[in-house]
Amino acid sequence: MKIVRSDSRRGIQYAASVIKSGGVVVFPTETVYGMGADAFNPAACRRIFRIKGRPSNNPLIVHVASVSWVGLLARDIPCAASVLMKRFWPGPLTLVLKKRKEVSCAVTGGLDTVAVRMPSSRAALDFIKAAGVPIAAPSANVSGRVSPVAHADVVDDFSARPKRGPSPDVLIAGGRSRRGMESTIVDLSRRRPAILRHGSITAEAVADALGISAEELLRRRLAAGAVEAPGMLKAHYRPRIPLVVFSTAAAMKKNLLAGRFPYPHKAVFVISPSKMTAVFRRAGFAAEGFRGSAELSRNLYYLLRKAAKSRARVIAAPLLAGAGLARAVNDRLRRAASEITLG
């Protein structure tokens, strides 16, 4: 895997040439690092699935460099899509639309819809424009593991696999992702808009743009096991050591400090509200704090990876109260958890 810098014009042009020749390129975005291929090259897109070990029914997001490119991918662009693109693009919002026949099932996971987004990262936009084609890309991690927020995370993932398998051809190194969590996904392929995945843009913000209530966006109930968009697998974002999620920060504090946890203190990495961090450290735990849901949404993947590299044998973290970004954080914690305890 060749590494080039995002601020190198020559490096970006080289990565674009790899895309044009059917290759796979890892690139930075404002959310997480993506692993991309030409969205109109089914063979290249199937390579992404092999490299990641990704289930073939888990669709990819297609990244575009301009709103005008959406018509190459979608056959029906409703007014709601135009409203959301105007409000949130470029940015961390993905729209699910009815696909054109030119878009391969290798991209859509066999669905008749396509997920499209225009990133705000300058490096991502420069790369996509240089490639001259929409880029189909999931996160650039081994499937099921924590999403990468820095190029070193990608290197770690693919060098740490027990069995050395295929790797991406190029990695564009562009520093740490500013948002640190995947995009929000809104389904506009049906009569009523619905949020399929919570992310950096809240349900309340999307609802405000559409002139509806957040409850209307969250009303749809999905069939058990249904995968209508990326990030919907039950087990996902998992660190290399177990993660135990508590119902509240207070419950976590009570159980850990009372010794009701089957690990010695020094073996537990605690992710806690900042006001509790000192208490956990004094008790012998490794602990990192956060000040609210916005900070944790930016740093969750960074902290999960940091914990897995530490001497800890298990991670403890609480679910967050409230709506907004707390929904996105809680979604990731639930899918990443080895165990969720109400105690």
Rank of each mutant, 00 (worst) to 15 (best):
M181Q: 13
L296A: 11
P230E: 12
R335H: 08
Y14I: 09
V70G: 05
A205G: 05
A81E: 03
G322K: 04
P42R: 14
A267H: 13
M35G: 01
K2P: 01
V244W: 05
T341I: 07
R197H: 07
A39C: 11
L217N: 02
T29C: 03
A321V: 07
R327M: 11
L320S: 04
R311L: 13
L256Y: 01
Y263C: 06
A308K: 08
S310Q: 07
L342E: 08
P59Y: 09
L188Q: 04
G211H: 14
E30P: 02
Y33H: 00
G53Q: 07
S21C: 12
K163G: 07
D156H: 15
A323S: 14
R240V: 02
R298I: 11
A286V: 12
D38N: 13
M1Y: 03
K98T: 13
N57E: 12
R161S: 11
A160K: 15
L222M: 10
K129S: 11
L60T: 04
D38E: 14
I128P: 00
H151P: 00
L93F: 02
W69I: 08
V149C: 00
S189I: 08
Y14F: 14
S338F: 05
V96A: 10
T108P: 03
V25S: 00
A203Y: 00
A321F: 14
G36I: 05
G144F: 09
I48S: 06
R298V: 10
A214E: 15
G23H: 03
S213R: 09
R161Y: 14
A209R: 02
